[in-house]
Amino acid sequence: MTASATHAALPEAPKLDGRALIVMLLLPITAVNLIGFILPVVNLAMISFMEVRSTGAMTGNWSFAKWQLVVTDPFYWELLWNSVRTSLTITLLTLLVSYPVALYLHRSSGMWRSILLVMVISPLLLSAVVRTYGWIAILSDRGLINNGLMALGFDGPLRLMFNLTGVVIGLTEILMPYMILALLAGFGKLDSRVEEAAATLGASPFRVFWRVVLPLSLPGIALGSLLTFVLAVSSFITPKLLGGGRVFLLATEVYDQAIVTLDWPLAATLSIIVLVVFGVALTIYSRVLKSLG
């Protein structure tokens, strides 16, 4: 009797309500984020509070030493300021050179647009290391530019490498594809009809750009700038190679402390500071988006 009763109830059992389904669908990404992002960050934060010997061996005791050092030593404040300022400069330059390209791409269509898109994306198929060496070949004392300039009778090589100039030039080019793609993604509200409407209402091409095109592309500019800034702050290969050890940025310092000096707690502390910078950038971005409506 009891057996047959349970049997009859079975077909209704596997029904899932909407909420359970959502939880199940979100489970994999939650797990990936937890294991791949949250746990490492927590781990990183813990390492930053560990005591370390000069050999790099950790004693297992807790310590505020690295945080104290970072907060009190003006070197690290300068490092932070340097990183932020350089990244902002790179972001601005990338925006200036990418914006016309993105606008042109947005307005082109058909085969031509596909070709242009492939041209924009194709640099991403090469590693940043290779592209940086490309820039070395162009910017070095015996590189393309200096050879050209000297052939024209210019005396002495122009110092384009192993300084901030080289880092800025290299990173600007390397980050351009990201900026262009982000700008394109944010150009959704840009509509040629709206530009035409402005023209028929008496706006010259310059005023159409200033009053219509630019305001409508602000979401794209905000998105592209955020992405480029974050990538600039966290890049270390290009600054290391093109900076030649003379350009000190947060990301290169993290690399040096972790790989060369083997001071993991200091590297972890600096990494957390980089994360805080990202947090601030993200906050500013969402504020800007909100004000754009």
Partner: peptide
């Protein structure tokens, strides 16, 4: 003459209002 000097009022099928 370019459109911005023609002094015509155009109403588009899609309205083309300035969204911002």
């Amino acid at each position: 003459i370019p459109p911005f000097r023609r002094d015509m009022g155009l109403v588009f099928q899609s309205y083309a209002l300035f969204p911002h």
